[in-house]
Each structure stands twice: as structure tokens, then as C-alpha cells.
Design a protein around this nucleic acid. Structure first.
Length: 572
RNA sequence: CGGGGAGUAGCGUAGACGGCAACGCACGUGCUUUGGGAGCACGAGAUCGCGGGUUCGAGUCCCGCCUCCCCGACCA
């Protein structure tokens, strides 16, 4: 590809609203343009990278017997009603009507459609197991897009669906996908850790997320270096040791002006934060006020809290008005004397005597609050976040916390969607059984962004050869004075192009100064940079620079021709 | 949706006291230049986010709205 005709442009200045390196570099190097919040166009360079990533995923899905297909982006709402998700999912599911007034949705995912197809096509146990997958655009009207391609609203996802006769078959499919994912992320140059995770809206029984470790990651991972335990903090339960026993003391109100946080309260009273109870207020999707009580030295885990109250439509922080309506005072709140709220008590609070808790009056707290004596727990269970240094639930060694970006996930769905769609097969026993399903997702664009996060330097992108849009970047200098330069460059370019898309190279044939060409070549990030100039010819051929290391050597032209037809092969 | 910030040429910004909309880069033409973001000259490019109001006059002041970014509630 001649750069003079490529649909792209590089930017000298950083766009102000791109903070993550991947976003900034993909914009500056001309891979990407934004159309709206969380909506992006891929320019030709970006499209080529996207296709390379897609191809890696495709090859590994095919390797485990996956059959590629394609399912629609627009679905009749009825199939989402049948699975129960039409009402269970909030505004991130976009609903609209077609010209005849029929309710439709934009697909966020495709379990429903798979279920319908299975009901239609699978009749006998002889057809199972089966692994189906497709690459398709998903629309999820996320509350907030961020970080360029890291979190968008419209994106292409590879989603695969395993179809088995029973749990044992599902186990095998799940393991096969797990192994495929390990290979995929290795080929993409992404170091990931597989963590056990919450099942979320999929409602299955077991799930793992493949996490790319990155400080900007939205998830907090709980890791144990001693035994290899790894989980999303959403689901980690760590043992919380019993506090020293004490006699329950009489309830006593104490003036605590200006102490709306645990830190200021503990400082004011001169006590440890572990002697306080912290109240946090949430509202479920169907309008129930939930008061969560954890000890002052812990944080509320909203996923656990939502699961504890079986929240429909999730939970969100309550407003000041909603808290007051239930007889509680923000900053000085507790379930003592409250009404119209369900109190969810962390198990440690239930075991901790004589805590300081809010008096539901501005500027006052209670000393010696004891659960059950002073208020009733609606639910008592573990609702706290694991903390750095807490004991590993498996081996007891100190845990560490890291941020991660979810680049893929695997779910055991069970029979939920098969049941909703009536997808059954006749077993050897002649009876109908529901098909047991799993689902497996990878966001393609997010992976592209993560690859850039992992592979860049201060000059630009450094693509791994496996996903680079072109095998090499050819810079020609001084062609106006020395015709041989352009003759050789053109010959190298055409030779590479003859080897097909995976060997094709980018030739900067523009009439630009050498500085511009070198700078752009580093920004664009091809794994090899070739320089042809009067100087390189005088030195014996073509200068070959490895982008990742900066290692540079001048090679005879024949040798470079051999590299273009063999040595630069992706994955070689 | 809550909190914070920003919308002026493709990108980055200045203009804020109400009085001809400016600068750098990028873009076009010509000449020079050609191994690390070249020089000179000329040129094109802006409904100053949108709508309303105040005013002789609004990028600037007032009201309403929209969009985008960042931090919190969702997920690949």
C-alpha cells in the first residue's frame, strides 16, 4: 500500500479528550475516528488490525470445532420477553418499534436467537455436542463510554455458544474454550489472568473472565501469589476473624458534630475505624431501599449486596431524599429507628459488639450499637470487599489487588435459554432433555486497544507481528535525486504485495521530509522499518530496523527481498 | 443519573474589557530544501455547539437546550 493513497492522516498534537495511550495513539496514527460517545469508525489501518485480531480468534475457535455463522442485530422483542430479559435488563437494552408498531430490540448478545435455532434444528443427542460462534455488532447503551475502544457502546464481539447433552459435556466445552482463550491471548500478545467472576445478567452457574492487567482497568482483581488464586473482587469472600468478645453495653447517644465520614468520626472519638459501623444506601431496580451495614474498616461490595437482596434490575446509590424518606440521616445514618428499608448486615458487623453507628440525627451517633438488640437485620451475609493484604480464602497468604480490563469471558449458562426457547433433544432414553449451553465472548475492538496498551513506547505503537496491519513500513528518501531509490522501493513493495495481504507492506512514497517519514513510521508501529536512500545504497543495500528493539542493520537488497517473501511472515 | 470540566478552521490553542475573529501545526500553489516533525512567498479554510434574549453592536453578558471528556452505578 502506498502511503500517498492511504485514507488516513497523522496528528502532530495529542487530541485533548484522549487520555489512555491506546486511544491517543490510535487517533494520532490514523487508525480510528470518533463519531459519537462510544461510537467509532475504523479507518483502513484500524480495519486491517481488527481483521487480523478477528482471524486469530477465528482460527482458535475453528481449532476446537467451532462452526462460524451469523445472527441478526435486530431482534423481535418477543424473544427477549420469552427469556425474561426484556424486563430484567435496564436502559442499556435499546427498544424501538418497527413501522408496524411491533416492539423490537437492538441485540446486546445472542443467547435467545441461538436457543430458537437450536429448538428448530437439534432433534437428537446424535447432533451434540456442538460449538457455534459468530462475530457480530452489539449495541449496549452503556451508562458511560470511556477510554476510546476500551469501553464503547457499539462493538463487534465474538460470541460462541456451546451446546451439550449434560453438565459433563458442558464441562468439556468450557475447558476447551478456556484453552482456546489462553492460546488467543498469547497470540495477540496480551498477558492475561483468568479470574472467577460474577454471572451477572447471564444468570449461569460458573464464569471466568480473562483479564488484561492495566492500571486503567475498571475491574479490581484479587490475586494470591502464593497459591495462584485469582478472582474478580465482585465475588471474593475472605474470612473475617472474630473480634474480641465484650459484654453488650447500654446504648448511648453522643454528639459528633461535622463527622459525616468514618475517618472524621473515628478521629473525633479517638477510636479505631473497626469500632464503627458504616451505613451505605442503595435502591434496587424495582424501587426498594436497601441499607447496607459494614464495619468502618471495610467497603460495601455492591455485587454481593445486589445478590444478597436478589435485586431486580441491579442497585444504584440512593439519593438524599430517598434516605430521609425512610427516617435516616445521610452522614449519620443507621437502621436504628429506620423504617421502609431492608437492612443488610455484613456478617462481621453481626459479630462485632458495641459499635459506633449513626443516630439518624444531624451531628449525633450512638455508642454501643449491637445488632438484633438495637435493630433487626433483614439479611446477614458477607457484603464486603476483599482488601489488599487480607487472607487468601484458599491458602491464607496475603492477597494483592490489581486493576484489569476484561478482554474475554466464559460462562456456564446451563439450560436457562434452552428452556425459554424450548430447545430440547431426544436422548438415548427416548425422552426430551434440555440442551445445556455455555457462552463465550471476546470484544474485538477492546482487544485491539489492549494490544496497544501493552505494546507502545513514547514514539508510537509497536505492533506484534501477528496483528500488525502491514508486515513492514518502507521509507524511501531522496528518490527525486536518485531514481534508483524509487525503483528499488517500488520493486520491494510490489514483491511483498504479490505474497498476499499478510505480507503486504506500507510504502511511504509521499514527498515528505525524512524527519516526517521516520516519525510517522514509528507512530504507525509496523514491526519492521525499511529505509531505502542514496546513503543506504552506498552502504550496501536497505536499512532494516526492528521497531520493538531499535536494532538496525544494512542488508543487501536480495536479502531484504527474501525477508519480504519469507522472513517477515506473521507468526514465523 | 449524581459530581467535575470543555465546546472558536482538520488538530492544538488565544481572544473574556461587548467594537474588523487570531496564532502554531496540518492543507493548496510556486521556488528552494531532502537521514529525524525544512525555509520563503502567496492562498484557501470558521453560522465562534444550537436556540432565544439584552444591546446601535454579542465569540464575549443573560436564559434554555445539545454534545463531548473525566470520576462514581454496567460489561466484551
Amino acid at each position: 500500500m502506498r502511503l500517498s493513497h492511504l485514507f488516513f492522516t497523522t496528528l502532530r498534537d495529542d487530541p485533548t479528550d484522549a487520555e489512555m495511550p491506546s486511544h491517543r495513539l490510535l487517533l494520532r496514527a490514523g487508525y480510528l475516528r470518533q463519531l459519537g460517545s462510544g461510537i467509532y469508525s475504523l479507518l483502513p489501518l484500524g480495519k486491517r488490525v481488527n481483521d487480523r485480531v478477528t482471524q486469530v480468534i477465528r482460527e482458535e475457535q475453528d481449532r476446537i470445532g467451532g462452526q462460524e455463522m451469523e445472527m441478526p442485530v435486530v431482534h423481535p422483542a418477543d424473544i427477549w420477553r420469552a427469556s425474561g430479559r426484556y424486563d430484567a435488563i435496564g436502559p442499556e437494552l435499546t427498544r424501538f418499534k418497527d413501522r408496524n408498531g411491533r416492539d423490537m430490540v437492538l441485540a446486546m448478545t445472542h443467547e435467545e436467537v441461538v436457543g430458537i435455532l437450536l429448538a428448530d434444528i437439534v432433534k437428537s443427542y446424535r447432533q451434540l455436542p456442538m460449538m457455534l460462534y459468530h462475530f457480530q455488532t452489539k449495541w449496549r447503551d452503556e451508562p458511560r463510554a470511556r477510554g476510546g475502544l476500551i469501553r464503547v457502546r457499539e462493538f463487534v464481539m465474538k460470541d460462541a455458544y456451546s451446546c451439550d447433552r449434560d453438565e459433563a459435556g458442558l464441562d468439556a466445552s468450557y475447558q476447551a474454550q478456556h484453552a482456546a482463550y489462553v492460546r488467543i491471548f498469547e497470540r495477540l500478545g496480551l498477558e492475561t489472568v483468568a479470574v472467577s467472576s460474577d454471572v451477572g445478567i447471564m444468570g449461569g452457574s460458573l464464569a471466568h473472565e480473562f483479564m488484561f492487567l492495566n492500571p486503567a482497568g475498571e475491574d479490581v482483581l484479587v490475586l494470591c501469589e502464593a497459591c495462584g488464586y485469582a478472582a474478580n473482587r465482585q465475588v471474593v469472600g475472605v474470612p473475617k476473624p472474630d473480634p474480641a468478645p465484650e459484654e453488650a453495653q447500654p446504648l448511648e447517644e453522643v454528639a459528633t458534630p461535622g463527622t459525616t465520614t468514618i475517618a472524621t468520626l473515628a478521629a473525633f472519638l479517638g477510636i479505631e475505624t473497626s469500632r464503627t459501623a458504616k451505613a451505605a444506601f442503595f435502591v434496587t431496580g424495582n424501587g426498594r431501599l436497601v441499607t447496607a451495614i459494614v464495619r468502618g474498616d471495610y467497603e460495601v461490595n455492591e455485587t454481593k449486596l445486589g445478590n444478597a437482596v436478589k435485586a431486580i434490575g441491579g442497585i444504584r446509590p440512593a439519593s438524599v431524599e430517598e434516605i430521609r424518606a425512610a427516617g435516616m440521616e445521610p452522614g449519620y445514618g443507621s437502621p436504628v429507628g429506620a423504617h421502609d428499608t431492608v437492612a443488610v448486615i455484613d456478617d462481621l458487623v453481626a459479630r462485632s459488639p458495641n459499635l459506633v453507628a449513626g443516630a439518624n440525627r444531624e451531628g449525633f451517633h450512638y455508642r454501643n450499637v449491637n445488632v438484633e438488640r438495637d435493630f433487626t437485620a433483614g439479611v446477614t451475609t458477607d457484603i464486603t470487599n476483599a482488601r489488599e493484604g487480607d487472607a487468601c480464602p484458599v491458602c491464607g497468604q496475603p492477597l494483592i489487588l490489581r486493576n484489569g480490563i476484561e478482554v474475554g469471558n466464559i460462562f456456564k449458562l446451563g439450560t436457562k435459554f434452552a428452556d425459554a426457547a424450548g430447545a430440547t433433544y431426544l436422548g438415548e432414553d427416548g425422552q426430551a432433555h434440555p440442551i445445556v449451553m455455555g457462552s463465550y465472548g471476546i470484544g474485538v475492538g477492546r482487544n485491539v486497544a489492549c494490544i496497544v496498551e501493552a505494546h507502545h513506547d513514547d514514539k508510537g505503537i509497536v505492533w506484534p507481528a501477528e496483528v500488525a496491519p502491514y508486515a513492514a513500513h518502507l521509507v524511501s528518501i531522496g528518490g527525486a535525486k536518485e531514481p534508483r531509490v524509487n525503483e528499488i522501493a517500488e520493486r520491494l513493495h510490489d514483491l511483498a504485495a504479490a505474497g498476499g495481504p499478510r505480507r503486504e507492506i506500507l510504502w511511504d512514497d509521499r514527498d515528505e521530509s525524512p524527519g516526517v517519514k521516520f516519525t510517522d513510521s514509528e507512530l504507525l508501529g509496523m514491526p519492521w522499518i525499511l529505509t531505502v536512500s542514496p546513503r543506504s545504497l552506498a552502504a550496501g543495500g536497505v536499512e532494516v530496523t526492528e521497531r520493538a528493539t531499535g536494532a538496525r542493520s544494512t542488508r543487501p537488497i536480495e536479502e531484504v527481498e527474501a525477508l519480504l517473501t519469507g522472513g517477515f511472515a506473521p507468526g514465523a
